[in-house]
Design a protein around this nucleic acid. Structure first.
Length: 722
DNA sequence: CACCGGTTTATTTTT
DNA sequence: TAAACCGGTG
């Protein structure tokens, strides 16, 4: 017992050992929250004797779940395999996978992602002839999702929106169910329904989960709260950890009120405050506090650390966005000379679109980097296409996937044909697949032949699945559908094909993970993983700088943190400026960003920047000006204006440093490969450069891959020294 | 039905 | 800026 808690502070000890009844831990940033959670779980198992599968630990992201699993595994010195440590969504799908038939869905339901939802809503909107200029499809989608999670009701809306919603929402739901699809919201909603409507199941799970732990409680939405109440309300052994100052997901329904609700609904929970910070210097903590104290209605916390004051916060103002980006790249290189490692550093931005700038500069300055949560691998067209094919194999009645790939690659099945098929299918309540094979269908011989060609392909693939492994299956799809051929025509095809190779690798790996006789079930599981893990959790711990949004930085820490583009309009975002509530959320986001830093914090911006093709000059972010200047060292234009020397400010472009920077930027390239060089490619293996033309090059790989035309500076290509 | 090219338009965060 | 959308042509 001593081992588990001996190095914890008093508050942490209390949080670990107060096992019975509701407990609420208010955990400031960097207060060892994950440590408390994992040790509490280990404590429950080792010292209270709770069976491993009777603990439910819910996190917010897959990353956090994995982290927790591996930490517990090392604390207990055994595997956490089937423990219930997961995100809300995977917990729900795990439950639904077993019981969804009770709700009239079929067992092999598939999960659609957000893009799919948007697409579906759009097409419904079109069908009802609702002018997208009048009603923004994105808004419509948001409202539908709100209705679904019961965060709103139809009566909240005025005409004509209420009218549209009353049509679109049921139609959306009907289509999902007919195709045996669920969206993210359904996962929660259907699980709640299941537990509410089925007394036996509710009791079963209430008994199974003797102890419930919830991480990042401030980010729970109403549905998630309801789930926790349903599962843990009876015995009340619910432990929640949260920090209202780090609530940054209100836009998707997170409700800070849930913290108050918890106090009301659960019987007099014990409240534990974790205020000792183990991460940052006091300068960083106090800068964070300067920012967050501007928010109203919050419980004041006093974070303290024993790490001393450390360095001042550096504020750099560049002449323009390129200058800003250079500063970051150069500072990173300088810090590496001082002994920091690339992996100790992170660049945090408000919007993904900013990642490009840094990507370009880092390539040129040879700063190794990785971008987290960019256009996710699984959102790429070719991957979604392959997934659609695979889903059709699991469930040929999935009209949504059918529609996606029926003419992908081009098979001469156009909008008109699909319109006719749709009308017929709708009239007789058939799926597209059934409609094609129905002798009554009114299609002309030629389109019908093409369509039958497509359904025939699906049939053959279903047969292939029975006898072959996944990689053979994917190869067959690629070859027989003509997809591969189409890729070969496309000049972006090589990159796409490379992605499909990666998908194959993934399938190969999971073939070993899931030991099951039934291939259909295995395929279903793998597809589910793909749906729920939209982020790649490839923890390639190569030594590189992390680029990511402030949102995805939550829960992480780095020795050195750059928060970039800190300008009014960029961060806080332009559209949040008019709403005090939204500014407060942006401010919390800044708070999260600042508190990621352990030792050094850089806040940068630019005097003017190109944004949406226009040049804008934004003032400093209010979050920067709210920090007490005595904690800041001003650099770049910020320094100049601080000293009030207008001379420098007038034309920074003429300065030597700027020109030097510019020159070095233009002259360098990431991969200085030439004809004849040997290279190594992530997916294709080793190859020889045949020719270099501008930014592109031709590389000959081994026989199976052949000659590829690739972007020269692509990070997947590495020159091999001779 | 496919393709081209011009035009518009919207720019946040994620399970 | 760039992606999505539209409308005309082959």
């Amino acid at each position: 017992m001593d081992n588990l808690i001996k190095d914890l502070n008093d508050a942490q000890k209390k949080a670990v050992t107060t096992t019975e009844g509701p407990v609420m831990a208010i955990a400031g940033a960097g207060s060892g929250k994950t440590n408390v959670l994992t040790r509490r779980i280990a404590y429950l198992i080792n010292h209270i004797g709770v069976p491993k599968d009777q603990i439910l630990a819910i996190t917010f992201t897959n990353k956090a779940a994995n982290e927790m699993k591996s930490r517990i595994a090392s604390l207990l010195n055994e595997r956490t395999g089937m423990m219930w440590i997961s995100t809300f969504h995977s917990m729900c799908s795990r439950i639904l996978r077993q019981h969804i038939e009770f709700l009239g869905y079929k067992k092999h339901f598939q999960i659609i992602d957000d893009d799919d939802t948007s697409q579906l809503i759009k097409s419904i909107q079109k069908e009802f002839r609702i002018d997208p200029k009048m009603i923004d499809p994105r808004k419509l989608k948001n409202h539908v999702m709100k209705l679904k999670s019961e965060q709103a009701s139809l009566s909240d809306y005025k005409e004509p929106l209420s009218d549209y919603l009353s049509k679109v929402y049921p139609e959306y739901q009907r289509r999902l169910k007919n195709n045996n699809l669920v969206d993210f919201e359904d996962l929660l909603m259907l699980t709640i329904r299941l537990l509410k409507e089925n007394d036996d199941l509710r009791k079963h799970y209430q008994q199974l989960f003797q102890y419930v732990l919830v991480d990042e409680f401030q980010d729970t939405n109403n549905a998630q709260y309801e789930l926790i109440r349903l599962l843990g309300g009876a015995h009340g052994n619910v432990f929640i950890v949260g920090d209202e100052d780090q609530s940054i997901y209100a836009f998707r329904g997170a409700n800070i009120e849930n913290i108050r609700r918890f106090r009301r609904d659960f019987d007099n929970p014990k409240v534990i405050l974790l205020e000792e910070n183990y991460r940052s210097t006091n300068t960083i903590l106090s800068a964070a506090n300067d920012v967050i104290k501007a928010n109203k209605d919050r419980i004041e916390k006093t974070l303290f650390s024993s790490k001393g004051d450390g360095d001042k916060v550096v504020a750099y103002k560049g002449y323009d966005q390129r200058d800003e980006v250079h500063f970051v790249a150069e500072t990173i290189q300088d810090l590496v000379h001082e002994g920091y490692r690339y992996e100790d550093m992170a660049v945090l931005y408000r919007t993904n679109s900013l990642s490009r700038l840094f990507e370009e500069a880092f390539m040129q300055k040879r700063v190794p980097y990785k971008i987290v949560g960019n256009t996710s691998f699984f959102k790429r067209k070719e991957i979604k296409d392959m997934v659609a094919y695979l889903r059709l194999i699991v469930n040929p009645l999935d009209d949504y996937s059918f529609e996606r790939v029926v003419n992908e690659p081009r098979r001469g099945i156009g909008a008109k044909t699909m319109e006719r098929l749709n009308a017929f299918a709708k009239e007789y309540n058939l799926s597209y697949y059934e409609a094609v094979n129905d002798s009554m269908n009114p299609l002309g011989t030629r389109p019908l032949k093409k369509l039958k060609g497509f359904t025939g392909l699906i049939d053959r693939m279903i047969a292939t699945l029975k006898s072959a492994d996944f990689n053979t299956l994917i190869d067959d799809i690629l070859n027989e559908s003509g997809y591969k051929e189409a890729l070969e025509q496309d000049d972006k095809g090589d990159v796409r094909f490379e992605n499909i190779l990666e998908l194959k690798t993934m399938f190969k790996e999971s073939e070993n993970t899931y030991q099951s006789e039934d291939k259909l079930t295995v395929l279903t599981f793998v597809l589910e993983d793909i749906a729920l893990k939209s982020q790649e959790d490839d923890e390639v711990d190569d030594n590189s700088v992390t680029l990511m949004t402030l949102h995805s930085a939550k829960g992480l820490e780095f020795k050195v943190v750059f928060i970039v583009a800190c300008e009014q309009g960029m961060f806080p975002l332009h559209r949040s400026l008019s709403d005090p509530k939204e500014i407060e959320e942006e401010r919390r986001l800044m708070y999260v960003g600042i508190t990621r830093a352990e030792e050094k914090l850089y806040i940068t911006n630019a005097k003017s920047r190109q944004h949406y093709g226009e040049i804008v000059a934004n003032p400093d972010s209010m979050f920067l000006t709210q920090i007490d200047p005595s904690k800041i060292r001003f650099e770049g234009l910020a320094k100049v204006s601080q000293e009030n020397t207008q001379r420098y400010q007038s034309d920074y472009r003429q300065t030597k440093t700027f020109r030097a920077k510019k020159e070095s930027l233009e002259s360098r390239h990431a991969n200085d490969i030439d004809k004849g060089d040997k290279v190594m490619h992530k997916a294709f293996g080793s190859g020889v450069v045949i020719s270099v033309t501008g930014n592109q090059c031709k590389i000959a790989f081994s026989k199976e891959h052949g000659i590829k035309t690739l972007v020269k500076d692509h990070p997947a290509i590495k020159k091999v020294q001779r």
